[in-house]
């Protein structure tokens, strides 16, 4: 069982009402332990993005239960009042494209989340530097996003997702724009970071290159998940 990390039970999401209603999620069960990286795989329209938005507290599920760490955050209704603070403090995001803020340098892009939470600038930047060093982009700390390569931008994006030490990180196709070598490097970094910071990471992907790297994979089809053991090839 998962002591922390994230657990989802019978999560449903319905769009619309009456005859036009669409059941995007029909009862999702998932659990990801701290330090674990799992893959969430499925074809387009299978409900991957809807599930990610529910997990990210961006849209409200229709029913089910979500437990983040030891706290029930959703049980047929939100159990936390400030979803914005929940996203800021307890969930990390890594996007398909890095979406770095173009007018902030690398350090401030990473430190911004902590600054928004009210941490002193010095402390926030110090934490950001620590992560950037860990992700091997410390030497680009003062660079602007436009001066970075695609791989560097994605590593900065991962650092931003980790900076608030969230119990869970939601990675939305983080390797999509990268070639095989860099894609595998990103997955390796996510595994390293998950272990180092005891974070549960869910990687949404349909990238065939990286699917064999997961030890555990959730397949999603027509709003329902099926769990299977992965090969975990790259990290054995």
């Amino acid at each position: 069982m998962v002591g922390k990390g994230i657990r989802i039970e019978g999560l449903k999401k319905r769009y619309g009402n009456g005859d036009t209603a669409v059941d995007a999620l029909k009862g999702i069960d998932m659990q990801v332990a701290p330090g674990e990286v799992v893959g969430l795989v499925g074809p387009s329209g299978s409900g991957k993005s809807t599930l990610l938005k529910c997990l990210g507290a961006v849209i409200e599920p229709t029913a089910g239960r979500m437990i983040l760490g030891d706290e029930v955050i959703y049980d047929d209704g939100w159990k936390v009042t400030d979803l914005r603070a929940l996203r800021r403090d307890r969930i990390g995001f890594v996007f398909q494209a890095p979406y770095l803020i173009p007018f902030l340098d690398v350090t401030d892009n990473v430190a911004l989340l902590l600054m928004l939470a009210g941490r002193p600038n010095g402390e926030a930047r110090s934490r950001a530097m620590e992560l950037l060093e860990a992700l091997d982009v410390g030497h680009r700390a003062k660079a602007m996003p436009s001066q970075l390569s695609g791989g560097e931008q994605q590593r900065v994006s991962i650092a931003r997702g980790l900076v608030n030490r969230p119990p869970v990180i939601l990675a939305d196709e983080p390797t999509a724009p990268l070639d095989s070598e860099r894609a595998l490097a990103v997955i390796r970094i996510l595994n390293d970071m998950a272990r180092k910071y005891d974070t549960a990471i869910i990687v949404v992907t349909h990238d065939e290159k990286i699917i064999p790297t997961f030890k555990r994979i959730y397949h999603i089809r027509d709003g329902v998940t099926y769990e299977e053991a992965g090969e975990g090839r790259a990290f054995d």
Partner: peptide, 16 residues
């Protein structure tokens, strides 16, 4: 717009 969406997603207040 995309940067603003990211800012909102990571918890930036509307007033910010």
């Amino acid at each position: 717009i995309r940067e603003i969406a990211v800012l909102k997603l990571i918890g930036t207040r509307n007033r910010t």
